[in-house]
């Protein structure tokens, strides 16, 4: 999309029947959503004991991101404000349970029942005031506060966010930390304008020692077709970049025997004490000297 949808209309109006169907039937969107969901699930760092978890998908839309959760065997609740998107999800027979709700009004879930939460490209909608009653800071506060309450101890929430500017990103992060969350921002592909993805990784309760570092471009083994023009053609080695460029020493020409004989003659005419000429004149000395 060339324009940001947040600037065009509120989400429940922007994603009407036409837009919801168009969004879901786009194979590029489906692929992107699947990749982002897999990454978010990876960052969620759920314990691998084989027991399915009960997860929350905030801004689930037509269930594209929830399908990744189902493929991993988890059960999930999907929450979205667009009824059209949810109707498309029902048509697609997604396995999760769907709720029509506004995350800016708080989640309305009981305390400590959710094992993890993901959100793909949804939280930045809260930064826009679409109604006169909307106050972005209060809506973010209501959202993060209710999310903190409904997550169980030690659970995580991972949001892929698409902030408009630095101020928006800082607003979202500050409200999350004020609600009691720990954690921060993980940025994949930070140097690529097109491939850059920002994940807000929040932990509820106990602080874990290690947070996974972001992916680098060079970790990718194969490039995607639609991004091949964007990717750099070859790697730049570190050693090449750091080596100082020393200037080459110019090799001056060695003067010959004629030059030496001429110089000795000049010195004799000046009255200096000059050794006699011989066959050894202007020869190199032995190395031992």
């Amino acid at each position: 999309m060339s324009n940001r949808p947040e600037l065009l209309a509120p989400p429940e109006i922007f994603y009407d029947d036409t837009e919801a169907r168009k969004y879901t039937s786009s194979s590029r969107i489906v692929e992107i959503q699947a990749k982002l969901s897999e990454r978010a699930l990876e960052l969620l760092a759920l314990p691998e004991d084989g027991v399915p978890r009960f997860l929350l998908d905030i801004g689930c839309g037509s269930g594209l991101s929830g399908e990744t959760l189902s493929e991993d065997g988890h059960h999930w609740i999907g929450l979205d404000i667009s009824a059209s998107m949810l109707h498309v999800a029902v048509e697609r027979e997604v396995e999760g349970d769907l709720l029509l709700g506004d995350m800016g009004q708080g989640l309305g879930l009981r305390s400590g029942v959710i094992d993890g939460a993901i959100s793909i490209s949804a939280v930045q909608w809260l930064c826009n005031a679409d109604k006169s009653s909307h106050e972005p800071r209060l809506r973010l506060k209501a959202f993060f506060g209710s999310l903190y309450r409904c997550l169980s101890r030690g659970a995580r929430a991972v949001f892929q966010v698409y902030p408009e500017n630095i101020a928006q990103r800082e607003l979202i992060l500050r409200q999350a930390l004020q609600a009691g969350f720990g954690g921060g921002l993980v940025v994949d592909y930070p140097h690529s304008t097109k491939k850059r993805k920002e994940f807000l990784v929040l932990t509820c309760g106990t602080v874990q020692t290690s947070i996974q570092t972001s992916k680098n471009e060079y970790d990718e083994s194969c490039s995607e077709d639609d991004n091949s023009d964007d990717e750099e053609s070859e790697e730049v080695g570190v050693s090449d970049r750091n080596r100082p460029r020393k200037r080459q020493r110019t090799n001056t020409k060695v003067k010959g025997r004629e030059w030496v004989l001429r110089k000795k003659e000049q010195s004799r005419r000046k009255g200096k004490n000059v050794p006699a000429d011989s066959k050894f004149t202007s020869r190199k000395r032995r190395t031992r000297f």
Binding site: A83, D97, L99, L100, G101, D102, K131, A142
Partner: peptide, 13 residues
């Protein structure tokens, strides 16, 4: 259609 509508009115928020 199996989807609860949990949207609140403005005076309920």
């Amino acid at each position: 259609k199996g989807i609860p509508n949990m949207l609140l009115h403005e005076d309920e928020v």
